[in-house]
Every structure is written in C-alpha cells, then in structure tokens.
C-alpha cells in the first residue's frame, strides 16, 4: 500500500531550505582558518557561518533564492509516480505558503510568477527511479532534494572538446582546462566557495543531469577510478590557487570540492559539463521504510 508522502516531503523541504548538511558546514568552518586573519575573505566566511546558525535556529531559509527544487525519488516496485508527483507538488506549494520557499517559478513567455513554485511539467524537477524488488532490499522510498540557486546555476558551463580557445583536447588534460576556465570565468558570481559537479560525455542534456547528480554525494567522495580521483583533488587545489576567494573578495577558498563522473558519448561528441554549486549547498535525503522516516 502506497502511503501519502505529502507531509513527509514538506518536512524534507523545510529541512533542506533552512539547514545545510554537516559535511558542508564543517568544510566552511575549516576554511575560516585557512584565510588571512581579518581579511574580507575571512569576514565573508564568518558571516556565512553565522547565517547558517541563525537559519537553523529560526527555521528560516538559508538563502532567499530557494532555488530550483530538484527531487530524485527512488521508490519500491509498483508505486504510482503520478500520485507521488502530485504529493510532492502539493508539499512544495505548502512550503511556499509557509515561507520555507520563495515563489520561484516564472513563466518565461508571460513573465508571470506562478506564486506557488509550481509551473508546467518541468518545475519542480522530479526524477523517478524504481528501486530493486523488495527481496533485494528495495522496499523503501528514498527522496533526495537539492535546492540550487540561480546565481550558481548561471555560471554553469558546457564545453565541446576539442576547444581551441583554451587548448583543450579530448582527454583528462582537456577536461582540466575546461574546468579551470569555468572557475576563472565564474569569479565569485556563483557564491564561492563552491562545489563542482563535472560530467564527461553524454549529450548536452544528459551532461547537465549527470553533473548535477554528482552533487548529491558528500564532500570528499572520490571517483572510483584513481586517475580521475587524483584529477578531482588537483582541480580543487589549482582552482584555489587563482585567488578568487569567498564571494570573489580574494582569498584561498574558491572551491571546496570537485566531483567528476564519466558517461558514454557519441563518437562525434565530447562534452565537459560543469555544474557549480554555491556554498549554500542545500541537499537532504529522506528515507521512508514502513512507518519509519529518517532525514539525513
């Protein structure tokens, strides 16, 4: 029997908008010590941390741009995705009414804001996947939510390699150039310090889906391929050597982590897609098993 998940998703939205995950907060706290004492960079990080604490205490949104809600739902065999979609949408409208979310869905043709964060089929984004059968441990519902603000979304970039303007060929060295170029172009506009989700391959659409999906993992999660994992760490380090710093004020912390995923591609195409996530890295996961619900 498929339960009504509206209330539980509402709570997931509240937690996602008003509190950031512990691994992100710990990374930001650590960055304070890396910046020069009394610098604008350090001041920015201190403000960011005070804001996180205040939002948690008051239950108010961390950032007024409550972003594009991106849901990833893994559900047991046989559940109706139509019903779950309706319930998720109802929860989102309710969350907007309760000021956990800003009304953020604007019709691009009429310029009208829908007022409740619901707009057409695409807003919010919901990806459904059926889990394995119950006997293989697939009897639970897992809903992940990411809120991705517009400032950082706008600095995302997609490169089609080879790209002569940055001397990037179709290999990991070319990927490195594309990523570093994107970070330099982004400056502080994506609300640095940021987290990078990078996909290699796919097509123009699937590339961005994968580069965002990479952001569901915790800070420090490395690619299983040691060569790619080493590139992830190298990119974070090199990006930080550019001196852009928190909010683009100058400083040592521009990127907190880089995550690279590989995909299959057409022989003719080689896309490198970079999704930039702001420091307000709002992602949460809800696990529902029978009557028990857990938020992580």
């Amino acid at each position: 029997m498929q339960p009504d998940i509206t209330e539980k998703v509402l709570e997931l939205i509240r937690r996602t908008s008003t509190d950031i995950p512990p691994d992100v907060e710990a990374s930001l706290r650590q960055a304070i010590g890396d910046e020069e004492k009394g610098s604008a960079a350090q001041g920015a990080l201190e403000t960011i941390l005070s804001n996180i604490e205040l939002s948690r205490k008051n239950g108010t949104p961390i950032c007024q741009d409550t972003g594009t809600p991106i849901f990833r739902v893994r559900h047991p065999e046989g559940w109706s995705t139509r019903k779950m979609r309706e319930q998720i949408r109802a929860a989102l409208a309710q969350a907007t009414k309760l000021s956990y979310m800003r009304p953020n869905a604007v019709d691009s043709l009429t310029e009208k804001n829908s007022g409740n964060n619901l707009g057409g089929e695409e807003f919010p984004t919901i990806h459904f996947e059926e889990e394995e059968a119950a006997e293989q441990g697939g009897g639970r519902l897992v809903v992940e939510l990411m809120l991705k603000g517009g400032g950082c979304e706008n600095v995302g970039a997609q490169y089609s390699l080879p790209d002569e303007s940055i001397g990037a060929g179709r290999d990991l060295a070319g990927v490195r150039r594309a990523v570093l170029d994107a970070v330099q172009k982004a400056q502080g506009l994506g609300c640095a310090p940021g987290i990078l989700g990078v996909s290699i391959g796919g097509d123009r659409g699937s590339g961005y889906v994968a580069s965002k999906a990479a952001l569901y993992t915790t800070i420090g999660t490395r690619n299983a391929d040691p060569e790619v994992a080493a590139m992830e760490e190298r990119l974070t380090k090199e990006a930080n050597s550019m001196g852009i710093g928190p909010m683009g004020f100058g400083g040592k912390t521009t990127i907190i982590d880089t995550k690279i995923v590989g995909m299959h591609r057409l022989p003719a195409s080689y896309f490198v897609t970079i999704s930039y996530m702001c420091w307000a890295y709002r992602r949460r996961r809800m696990i529902l098993e029978g009557d028990r619900v857990e938020y992580k």
Binding site: N51, L54, S55, N58, T60, I62, C63, D65, G149
Partner: peptide, 13 residues
C-alpha cells in the same frame, strides 16, 4: 556595495 551572497537570514534581521 557588496553584501554576502546567501547570508539571507542574517541580512533579513
């Protein structure tokens, strides 16, 4: 003037 991006609860106060 540059404000701190994302420091939304703090600035709202």
């Amino acid at each position: 003037l540059h404000a701190i991006g994302g420091a939304a609860s703090l600035i709202a106060q």
